[in-house]
Computed example of a mutant assay.
Amino acid sequence: MSALSGAITVAALAGIASSAQLPQTLTVGVIGDFGWTGWNPAPATFCSDIMPKLQAANVTIPRELQNDCDPGDRTYINNATALQTDTASYIGQVCQRKGCSAFVSVGDNFYDSGVDFTTGGVTRFQEAWVDMYTGPAFNNKRWYQCLGNHDIVKGQAGVDFETKIAPIYDDRWYFGTQGLPYYSYDIQGRDWTATFVVVDSDCFIESYQESTSVYQNEYTTTCHQDTQTQVDFLEQAFANSKAEWKFLQLHHGFQSSSTNYTELWPLINIVEKHKATVLNGHDHCLAHYYGNQTNFILSGGAGYPQAGDCNNGVPLGPYAKWLGANNQSAANGFVTLDISKNSIVVEYYARDMKFEGGDLYPVPNDLTPSYNFTITQQSQ
């Protein structure tokens, strides 16, 4: 599994032959929780009338059907589709101005129940990602992907589609060189290197092992029994890397305003040891948390925003440095990393949530960052 393949790709896509030609600063977009478009859930009558009868008759209901009956997600679908479309356009505007070189996904690429290698899965992949993220800011830009809980509802078939089929379908979609849900890659500038390690945090979540969980399947059961493989992979990748900057890229948040997934501690312990930075999604908002000299960058606002995930914009405790939410809505948007030899400038772009008759999240000039901070402590 080559950690250098990502660096080569970024340079090659930019038409750069050697590191001497690389820019001193590269901008990477961090985007998560975005893939709502094209989801057509089961009929409401099935969810309300038929499924209870089938369950009463001891008929096994596939996890994806159970998940598609989630009443909350069903109410979001129309607005979520429009918001993903508008936010994709917004990200394109910002990244065209900033010159984003690549994109980093923090998971939940396809709501509500992922995609697999079927007609429906292929159609959704085309509509919700290939056709959605097109234009000057997105074309020929590599997306370093990551799995979220919605991506694994279909089990191994869904994981295989995203890790093995999708990269062949569209070569912007990158999932390492081994077709595994965990991998590492480097992004290089003229005189610096940044190492990113992707893991599947779904494997660590205890509640997903409960028989009632829609995320409990043969994939999550097997990988939960062997989380040490991913812990060791992270430790080895960071230990072997001489990069100035190191990142852990995963879906669930260890620091959060809604749910702190403490099961991730074995990973976070390694992050702290190497003075790395955490990139995650899962909470449908934008936020910056800081604890134990570690930055946690939440970028989960590219689809349907949820104010409660960022505690309606009210920081609790000293860890929450900025929350992209108010008492009406969380902001749609994403995060950029301007990486150079001596610093990483982290900028949060929150979209003005204007609609006919109101504005859920007013931003006077949403083509400038709503919040930013700078990392100067290099990794070890």
Results as ranks from 00 to 15, higher is better:
residue 2 S to G: 13
residue 3 A to M: 11
residue 5 S to L: 12
residue 8 I to V: 13
residue 9 T to A: 13
residue 18 S to L: 08
residue 29 G to R: 08
residue 30 V to F: 10
residue 35 G to H: 09
residue 37 T to Q: 14
residue 39 W to I: 05
residue 44 A to G: 13
residue 44 A to S: 14
residue 50 I to N: 01
residue 54 L to W: 04
residue 54 L to A: 10
residue 59 V to M: 09
residue 65 L to F: 10
residue 66 Q to F: 03
residue 68 D to Y: 08
residue 70 D to Q: 10
residue 70 D to A: 07
residue 70 D to K: 06
residue 71 P to M: 04
residue 75 T to H: 09
residue 79 N to C: 03
residue 81 T to G: 08
residue 83 L to V: 07
residue 88 A to S: 15
residue 91 I to W: 03
residue 101 S to N: 09
residue 102 A to F: 09
residue 102 A to L: 14
residue 102 A to K: 05
residue 105 S to R: 05
residue 108 D to H: 03
residue 111 Y to L: 08
residue 116 D to A: 12
residue 118 T to P: 01
residue 122 V to N: 11
residue 123 T to L: 13
residue 123 T to S: 15
residue 128 A to R: 09
residue 129 W to L: 12
residue 136 P to G: 13
residue 139 N to H: 05
residue 143 W to E: 06
residue 143 W to K: 02
residue 145 Q to W: 03
residue 150 H to Q: 10
residue 153 V to F: 03
residue 154 K to T: 10
residue 154 K to Q: 15
residue 156 Q to Y: 06
residue 160 D to T: 05
residue 160 D to Q: 12
residue 161 F to I: 01
residue 161 F to Q: 01
residue 163 T to H: 04
residue 163 T to A: 10
residue 166 A to C: 02
residue 167 P to T: 04
residue 175 F to I: 02
residue 179 G to D: 06
residue 180 L to R: 15
residue 181 P to S: 11
residue 181 P to D: 14
residue 182 Y to E: 05
residue 185 Y to C: 07
residue 190 R to G: 04
residue 195 T to A: 02
residue 202 D to Q: 14
residue 204 F to Q: 08
residue 209 Q to V: 01
residue 215 Y to C: 06
residue 216 Q to P: 00
residue 220 T to M: 09
residue 222 T to Q: 15
residue 223 C to Y: 07
residue 223 C to V: 10
residue 229 T to N: 10
residue 230 Q to T: 01
residue 233 F to C: 04
residue 235 E to G: 15
residue 236 Q to G: 06
residue 236 Q to T: 14
residue 239 A to E: 12
residue 245 W to D: 04
residue 248 L to N: 09
residue 249 Q to I: 05
residue 254 F to Y: 15
residue 255 Q to K: 15
residue 259 T to C: 07
residue 260 N to P: 03
residue 269 N to R: 15
residue 270 I to T: 14
residue 272 E to M: 07
residue 273 K to L: 08
residue 278 V to M: 03
residue 284 H to S: 07
residue 293 Q to G: 02
residue 301 G to D: 07
residue 301 G to I: 07
residue 307 A to S: 15
residue 312 N to M: 09
residue 313 G to S: 05
residue 317 G to V: 06
residue 318 P to R: 07
residue 319 Y to D: 15
residue 319 Y to I: 14
residue 329 S to H: 10
residue 332 N to W: 03
residue 336 T to P: 02
residue 342 N to P: 00
residue 343 S to G: 00
residue 344 I to W: 02
residue 349 Y to R: 02
residue 351 R to Q: 11
residue 354 K to N: 05
residue 359 D to K: 00
residue 359 D to P: 00
residue 364 P to A: 13
residue 367 L to I: 10
residue 368 T to M: 11
residue 369 P to I: 00
residue 373 F to S: 04
residue 377 Q to N: 13
residue 378 Q to M: 12
residue 380 Q to C: 01
